[in-house]
Structure formats: C-alpha cells, structure tokens
C-alpha cells in the first residue's frame, strides 16, 4: 500500500430527509455518538426530493460515496416519497454499474428520527466501505 492510499479519506455526501433521517443524525449528536467526519449531511425536505441529478452532481464534484437516507416505508411525512426514492436509486445504481462506477458508492438507508445509533452505524459502515473501494474514478 502506498502512502497515498493509506491516507485516503473518502468524501461522502449524505442526503437526509428533514423529518426522519436528519432528526436521526441530530439525535446521534445529542447522544454523543461519534460518526466519521467524512460524512457531510445535506438536509432536504423528503428523500423523494433527492433527484438523481443531485447524486450525479455530487459524484461529478468529487464525492467518493453518496448516502441517500429517508423515512422507513409508511413513515414518510409526504406519505409515499420514499417508494419513488428507492426505485430511482435502484435504477441509478444499475446505470452507474453499467458505466463502470462501483454501484456500492451509492447507498440508500431508511433511518427514523429515533435511530441516532443507526445513523452513526451506517455512517461508520459506509465510510469503511468507501475507504476500501478507494477514490471514486470520477475524482478529477
């Protein structure tokens, strides 16, 4: 392993929905749970608001991984936004795979407002996974 690879710290963008996942991230903080500073949360009103274009833009701008988080099925503040999110993420992952970007770099998780521990755990897991994958091929 070269020096460069050893010091690789991934940049991860986490899109969090306002009602569940962002509250979950907040709770992780209130609970004094540590999660890697690589994860940068961006608050959106609903996971259904996360256009695949945002995800692409994140990758284009040098993100190594993108985490899409939302409410569990049935919990969505806007009733059904997260169903559409999961469909989009699936198609986008398949497209990424087809153009030679590891689909693992995009991950969708449902995190409730009460699941601060889950947010921290997912952030840890995902950061480790992306660290193992190495820098995104899209990094300029």
């Amino acid at each position: 392993m070269t020096q460069k690879e050893e010091s690789f710290e991934p940049k991860i963008i986490a899109f969090c929905c306002n009602w569940c996942s962002y509250a979950g991230a907040d709770l992780a903080g209130s609970m004094r749970l540590k999660y890697p500073p690589n994860v940068l949360p961006i608050r959106v009103m609903c996971s259904g608001r996360i256009s695949p274009h945002f995800v692409m833009k994140a990758f284009q701008k040098g993100a190594d991984g993108v985490l899409v988080t939302g409410c569990h099925y049935g919990d969505c503040h806007y009733m059904k936004g997260n169903y559409i999110t999961m469909r989009r993420v699936t198609i986008l992952k398949d497209l990424l795979k087809f153009v030679g970007v590891e689909p693992k770099r995009l991950r969708a998780e449902w995190i409730a407002g009460s699941e601060g521990d889950k947010f921290a755990r997912v952030a840890h897991e995902f950061t480790d996974e992306i660290r193992n994958l190495g820098p995104s091929p899209l990094r300029g």
């Binding site: 695949p52 274009h53 692409m56 990758f59 284009q60 198609i91 986008l92 497209l95 153009v99």
Partner: peptide, 11 residues
Amino acid sequence: AIPIFHLIRAF
C-alpha cells in the same frame, strides 16, 4: 462536464 451530462440524460 462528463459523465454527468450523459448520465443525467440517460437517467
């Protein structure tokens, strides 16, 4: 900018 231009259209 590539591949964003083509992937957005593809999606």
